[in-house]
């Protein structure tokens, strides 16, 4: 057994997953996406990770929590490792992500409002299906869309 100081501090995928409060499958997925890589392998061929891997995984999870995609997180990790980068670079990306999220919220709100109007129009639950204003409105919207496409 290699039990020098370095090897003793290495973590198997299971231990790293427990430390980072995630699953080994998630870590294998991150590895396939190029976000993490094992530091070395044991004599039995098992992946081994150092303490930096746990920090990196926490970073990935927090960034996902803030809405960043895996590709964006990849770029953030690269930025984090770039000597010439500064806090302003990270801040700019955070602001741009916020703009994207606000834009999606606005689009979702418009969808919700449109559904709200359809629901308000259909206030008679006992209408037969062919008299349902929601169906009529959706079909009419579909017709409008297909006419517009021609």
């Amino acid at each position: 057994m290699l039990l020098n100081g370095r090897k003793q501090s290495m973590l198997t995928i299971g231990k790293l997953a427990a430390l980072a409060q995630t699953t080994p499958d998630a870590l294998r997925f991150y590895e396939r996406e190029g976000l993490i890589a094992p530091t070395s392998k044991s004599e039995g061929g098992y992946r081994l990770y150092d303490a930096e891997a746990a920090r990196r995984i926490r970073f990935i999870k927090q960034a996902q929590h803030c809405g960043f995609t895996l590709a964006e997180i990849h770029a953030l990790l690269d930025l984090r490792a770039t000597d010439a980068a500064c806090c302003g670079d990270m801040r700019k990306r955070a602001i741009e992500k916020k703009l994207q999220l606000e834009s999606r919220i606005k689009a979702l709100k418009a969808m919700s409002d449109a559904l709200g109007r359809l629901i308000a129009d259909c206030n008679q639950e006992r209408y037969p299906l062919d008299a349902c204003p929601i169906l009529a409105a959706l079909e009419s919207a579909e017709l409008t869309a297909s006419n517009g496409a021609r």
Binding site: I95, E96, K98, L99, Q100, S103, K106
Partner: peptide, 17 residues
């Protein structure tokens, strides 16, 4: 300053700066 005019920026479709 986009942080002070976020609604306007979103309204115009600003996604990058």
């Amino acid at each position: 300053n986009v942080l002070e005019a976020l609604d306007r920026a979103v309204e115009l479709g600003v996604l990058s700066l």
